[in-house]
Computed example of a mutant assay.
Amino acid sequence: MRRHATQPESAPVSMRTVILDIQTDGSMTVTIDGASYLPEEGAWVRASFPQIIDHASDERTVPVRVEVHEADGTSFTELLPARSPRPEPAAEPAPKRKKDKPASPALIEITGEGFVAGEDVACCVIVSHTDATPHGTARAVLEPKQVKGVGEVVLVGRISGTVVTRRLP
């Protein structure tokens, strides 16, 4: 009888659980992996969501399962994946001589409103991602070569579900 090769042990999967219990006045209680997470002052409100998720996910390096329990009895669950580590900025190259300096690329800006402050916003044709501002506005800046032959771009809020469609020039 032939024995199977020993399989290497897989790394443990780690996902934090955040539970948001929304009260009728809009305040909320927060637990992370069963432990209460209290604000430094005042009460948690919906606008605190990005701050809570950044804390629970170690600045988006750990995936998070979010359960939201609304005051009216409805609830929903969302899984927020960890972001890929962003590369360190490269050291600035030596300045080029004036005649070698390439022209700056033209950029296309796409904006939309109605997003949750700080949420990830997908820019579809998916060539990049962006974050919403504290005012719920998202902005994507694209190079024309990224959208060559594309007539429209869609911004999709990963938390709010907001979808904004913009026609390209």
Results as ranks from 00 to 15, higher is better:
Q7C: 01
H55G: 09
S36Q: 08
S75K: 10
V18T: 03
L79P: 01
T77V: 14
L38R: 14
V163D: 01
L168D: 04
L80Q: 11
L168V: 05
S57E: 02
Y37P: 02
R2N: 11
E113P: 05
S75F: 03
S104W: 01
L20Q: 04
A47K: 12
V154T: 15
F115Y: 08
P39V: 05
I52P: 00
T165Y: 07
P8H: 10
P89S: 11
L155Y: 07
A35G: 07
H55T: 15
H69P: 00
D25R: 01
E41P: 00
D120L: 05
A140D: 00
H135F: 09
Q7D: 05
G161F: 04
M1F: 13
V45C: 05
F49V: 14
T29P: 00
E67N: 13
E70M: 10
A106R: 12
M15L: 02
V153D: 05
C123R: 03
A56P: 03
V62L: 14
V62Q: 13
F115G: 11
G149I: 02
K145L: 07
H129C: 09
I110T: 00
T77M: 04
V127E: 06
V164K: 08
R2C: 06
E88N: 08
K148F: 02
A71T: 01
P93A: 14
V156L: 05
V18A: 04
T111P: 00
V66W: 06
I126E: 15
V116M: 07
G161L: 07
T77G: 04
